[in-house]
């Protein structure tokens, strides 16, 4: 599936994901795995291009607040659509660390989960499977109301 943003596929996503043990190019928009980003911290500080971070779903994101603060993109992961850790990581990034740049989810998600993910603060989707704009649209827009406050709230929420 292509990268999805605002319900539409993005044809010219500039971001390149680096391998865990790969080389770091000197320019371009790169997504650096968290561990590599720590290793190459100095090298990356001179990087000509935008920096993204790929964050495993079993780390405490608060421990990496400084790296995250410098990122233009954070990618959180769903190794299985039933694994909901990234939802909490997203809320911590948005609500506790105050991260305001692009937050992307990568992995296994159903279109039906997109609405939940958006409400937790994700704004782009890099998920497996075929993209069907109609299904995506239908599945992610059923609920016009929520009982909880949401990130950059667009849904009508009431109490919570």
């Amino acid at each position: 599936m292509p990268i999805i943003k605002d319900g539409n596929p993005v044809s010219d996503d500039p971001w390149v994901l680096l391998e865990e043990d790969g080389d770091v190019p000197s320019s371009g928009d790169i997504i650096v795995p968290l561990e590599l980003a720590q290793e190459k911290r100095e090298r990356l500080s001179n990087h000509a291009g935008r920096l993204g971070l790929l964050v495993p779903n079993d780390v405490d994101v608060e421990d990496y607040a400084d790296l995250i603060g410098k990122a233009e993109l954070v990618v959180l992961q769903l190794p299985a659509f039933t694994d909901g850790r990234a939802y909490s990581q997203a809320r911590i990034l948005r609500d506790v660390l105050g991260y305001e740049k692009e937050l992307r989810v990568k992995g296994d998600a159903l279109p039906d989960q997109a609405a939940y993910l958006k409400r937790c603060g994700f704004d782009s989707f890099d998920i497996e499977g075929d993209f069907n704009a109609d299904i995506w649209q239908r599945a992610s827009s059923h609920m016009s109301k929520s009982y909880q406050r949401n990130y950059r709230d667009k849904l009508a929420h009431r109490s919570l």
Binding site: F81, Y87, Y116, C120, Q148, S159
Partner: peptide
């Protein structure tokens, strides 16, 4: 009732372990 509302389709806690 407050918790019923709060927990309904909770965006963060719908894919718990």
């Amino acid at each position: 009732e407050l918790m019923r509302q709060w927990s309904s389709l909770h965006p963060e806690f719908s894919y718990l372990p």
